[in-house]
Nucleic acid binder design. Sequence first.
DNA 1: CGCGAGCTTGATGCCGATCAATGCATGTGG
DNA 2: CCACATGCATTGATCGGCATCAAGCTCGCG
Lengths: 242, 242
Amino acid sequence: MLTPIRLEPFKVACSSCNLRELCLPLGMSPAQVERLDELVANRRSIPRGDALFRQGDPFDALYAVRTGFFKTVLAAADGREQVTGFQMSGELLGLDGIGQSLHACDALALEDSTVCVIPYEQLESLSHELVDLQRAFHKVMSREIARDHGVMLLLGTARAEERLAAFLLNLVRRLHERGQSMSEMILRMTREEIGSYLGLKLETVSRTFSKLQDQGILEVRQRQIRILEPEALKRLVSEGSC
Amino acid sequence: MLTPIRLEPFKVACSSCNLRELCLPLGMSPAQVERLDELVANRRSIPRGDALFRQGDPFDALYAVRTGFFKTVLAAADGREQVTGFQMSGELLGLDGIGQSLHACDALALEDSTVCVIPYEQLESLSHELVDLQRAFHKVMSREIARDHGVMLLLGTARAEERLAAFLLNLVRRLHERGQSMSEMILRMTREEIGSYLGLKLETVSRTFSKLQDQGILEVRQRQIRILEPEALKRLVSEGSC
DNA sequence: CGCGAGCTTGATGCCGATCAATGCATGTGG
DNA sequence: CCACATGCATTGATCGGCATCAAGCTCGCG
């Protein structure tokens, strides 16, 4: 069943989007980005809690997060779930669906969000014309693969403290790239969702937050996190369990 | 430093390669596959234990395994390592290097192997001409992303028994697609490498093999594995820890 | 034949899961 | 405006699976 595409009353334009340095247009010339405008003509709004797409939905478009925040969730046969990623503005959703022409995971909005719809067939045609678009797209996919390998390393070898530290540093870096603070953030996801992403239970996530707070590395107030000792946090990641 | 490319005395041709249904040419017309022959002109031999490329090497080509067996390894700052994948004939190596134009992991031959060299610049140009090549390449990358997400699910939620069961079923399926037995295989990797891939210690891998043997599900003789009860093995995977 | 890499098996300990209770913020209806 | 419900987070007590440490074992190979 096709997920309905809701047309917004006004046009989107990559060429005038302030996310173009964080999104697909990265590395493309202004003239080429204008060609992208033909392609990315539609937006869609997703209220908090709703799915952008679900595992098994037919794949016919990629999505770029414009505003808001998403998680992607993979479900196993027996019902267990794993959060495979959190996506913020400028990041692409749906890359894992190309291979089977079906979406491979659920994408759920963690807050009211808007996305740009990138019809995949058209992306293929256009990247056929624009070498730089092709190149940019390949880089996006490749970086996703490299990111996933990093997560596998984390899940395979790191202790709870290190997992959480790496997660927070990654999150705050991406937020900083989007103009927010380097040391403070408001988490969009629950402890349970963090735990699912990191291969931990929510109680462990909560305890680890408390421990990092006791050590004076973080200040934790619900979902408001302030990093007091960024160096100590980085040390946790780079020194592993020593 | 560039890894030297050794030219083989005779030409490689995708169009006459018996791996074309498992490799990049999947889904391309015979005429188009012939165009690939221009591109994939070189082979390289890698003796067992040697690296095809290493983390940080400049990226300028992808590699398709022709014969043999590889592992890819990601190293953390503190020296810990994680095997991120095992690759057999027809599978591509180096996809995670496109994004940074540097190889993101080590690729090591687990037995004497040969690979086809796919110069990346030329792959970009040619896939610019051949829509079906572009499409096939996107699918390969997308499937790698989906595979990685599956591994993340395994690492995040599964117990040792289930991890090993899923690993063995995946391996035997891929070997079967290459004409080998559905129930028997010879492992190319050590217990330690399996453990690294699955986020377990080698002792746990060994114990789990023994347990599955005691249960009559497997017959284990060193690296020779026979699956006696495929259904029981599948049940371990789909029912999780219940 | 003896060496060494890789594998198996046992004993013990620890990290994180599990079970359980309480706390805290937000929202809703009487 | 307060009582109560609900969802999320924190904290404690206990348990269990896997890691760790430590011997032996097997097999291929010089």
